[in-house]
């Protein structure tokens, strides 16, 4: 069976083409991230109204929720990129997956620590085995496993494939983990209210949140592109176009 993909898809497989295109995108994404994040933070911290129940502590939402979304999107991206890399033997896809892993892990740390801190004024404890926090913790363990697997292989190509297999296994497991943790949580703590479920947030509260989510995505893309480009250079060091870039940088 031969699946034909549009032309740009095959161009993606060329490291030089990717390096150039990503280099063109990178400054715009950085700029967008800077603007969106500063607008979102000021809007969320200063201009959004306080919550009638939680007061001002709810303002943690503007950094907590986007990082949780990003942590999950990043894992999804790694699995999709890993699958593309395995199916079409595309080195660039593996490099994207590898570059995404540490960023996703740091997003998970942000989500976990801000969630725990938010728990203190809300639940009265620094850590609560809430379903969302617990599944985020397991996601963090999955990230650690994948990063450890990358560094365990001396041969980079084998490490890429191993991590791709593990992230595909992980992505099948994530819904199961989520479901089982939620079930387990209701068994053990019947009356817990979650951090983010609210009776319909007014727009002056969720608009800054939307801005923050977009800002996080832009920041993520900016760092991902940066890491991917350097990894491309590292792996293609023997080829002519990389030597030209190194000579230029002198």
């Amino acid at each position: 069976m031969k699946i034909t993909m549009p032309r740009w898809f095959y161009q993606l497989a060329s490291p030089k083409w990717c390096y150039d295109i990503l280099g063109m995108l990178s400054p715009w994404l950085g700029l967008a991230a800077l603007i969106l994040l500063s607008v979102g933070v000021v809007w969320g911290l200063v201009f959004a109204p306080p919550d009638y129940q939680q007061g001002n502590s709810y303002r943690i939402i503007y950094i907590h929720v986007p990082s949780a979304i990003l942590a999950q999107s990043c894992f999804m991206l790694m699995a999709v990129a890993g699958a593309i890399g395995m199916i079409w033997k595309m080195k660039v896809a593996h490099i994207v997956a590898k570059s995404a892993a540490p960023i996703g892990a740091s997003m998970t740390i942000i989500a976990l620590s801000t969630g725990a801190i938010w728990g203190k004024p809300t639940w009265g404890a620094w850590w609560v085995w809430d379903a969302r926090l617990t599944s985020m913790l397991i996601l963090f363990f999955l990230y650690i496993g994948i990063i450890a697997l990358y560094s365990a292989f001396e041969n980079k190509a084998s490490g890429d494939q191993a991590a791709a297999i593990l992230s595909l296994v992980g992505i099948v497991n994530i819904p199961i983990i989520k479901y089982s943790v939620e079930w387990w949580n209701t068994l053990h703590q019947p009356a817990s209210f979650t951090l983010t479920k609210k009776p319909a947030m007014p727009p002056e509260m969720w608009l800054p949140l939307l801005v923050m989510v977009l800002g996080y995505y832009c920041f993520f893309a900016f760092v991902l592109i940066g890491r991917t480009r350097i990894e491309l250079l590292e792996r293609e060091q023997k080829s002519g176009w990389v030597s030209a870039i190194i000579n230029e940088a002198r």
């Binding site: 397991i138 650690i144 496993g145 450890a148 296994v169 992980g170 497991n173 199961i176 479901y179 943790v181």
Partner: peptide, 10 residues
């Protein structure tokens, strides 16, 4: 253990 334990949790 690092790779497998998170997947064992369910």
């Amino acid at each position: 253990s690092l790779l497998v334990l998170p997947l064992y949790m369910p």
